[in-house]
Computed example of a mutant assay.
Amino acid sequence: MPAAIAGGLRGFIRFFRDVMGEDAYRKYQAHHAASGCNGPALTEREFWKDKMDRQDANPGGRCC
């Protein structure tokens, strides 16, 4: 039973991280590799800065 609880907790943590967008850089890396881009991928720091800059420039449906 403890293994089932641990597995469920790991699944919940993975789900929560995905909802919060923590996996965005990993998805970006996978897309960059699959799309055959010629240039180098952004570093994680560059990626998050670019993402935040785009969100600030285009707030969309955010409440604040």
Rank of each mutant, 00 (worst) to 15 (best):
G11M: 09
I13R: 11
A3W: 05
G60N: 07
P59V: 03
F15E: 10
G60T: 05
K49W: 00
A4H: 02
R26S: 04
L9Y: 02
K49R: 03
D23L: 00
L9D: 02
F15P: 07
S35N: 10
D53C: 05
R54N: 14
K51S: 10
R45D: 04
D53H: 01
P40A: 15
A6R: 13
C64R: 06
Y28H: 11
C37I: 05
G36T: 04
A6E: 05
I13S: 08
R14A: 12
A30G: 11
H32C: 14
G21I: 00
A41K: 03
G11H: 05
L42N: 06
R17H: 09
L42H: 01
R14G: 05
F15A: 10
L42D: 03
I5A: 13
R10W: 04
C63F: 12
A6S: 13
D18R: 12
A30N: 14
R10T: 08
A33I: 08
M20H: 05
K27F: 09
A24I: 06
A33G: 11
I5N: 10
G11K: 09
N38V: 03
I5F: 08
V19F: 12
D53S: 10
W48H: 12
G7R: 04
R26F: 01
G7T: 04
A41L: 02
Y25G: 03
A34K: 15
G21F: 00
Q29I: 10
Y28G: 13
Q29M: 14
G36M: 02
G36V: 02
C64V: 01
G21H: 01
R54M: 15
D53G: 06
G39N: 15
N58C: 12
H32T: 10
G39C: 14
R17W: 00
E44R: 03
G21E: 01
M52N: 07
A3T: 06
A6P: 07
S35K: 12
N38I: 06
A34H: 15
M20I: 03
R62S: 13
D56K: 08
R62Y: 08
G60L: 04
A30I: 15
D50W: 09
C63W: 10
M1D: 14
G61H: 11
A24K: 15
N38Q: 11
I13N: 06
G61F: 13
M20R: 09
G60K: 09
C64E: 03
E22S: 06
P59N: 04
Y28K: 11
A34P: 14
H32W: 10
A57W: 12
P2F: 00
A3Q: 10
Q55S: 09
G21D: 00
G11E: 06
R14Q: 08
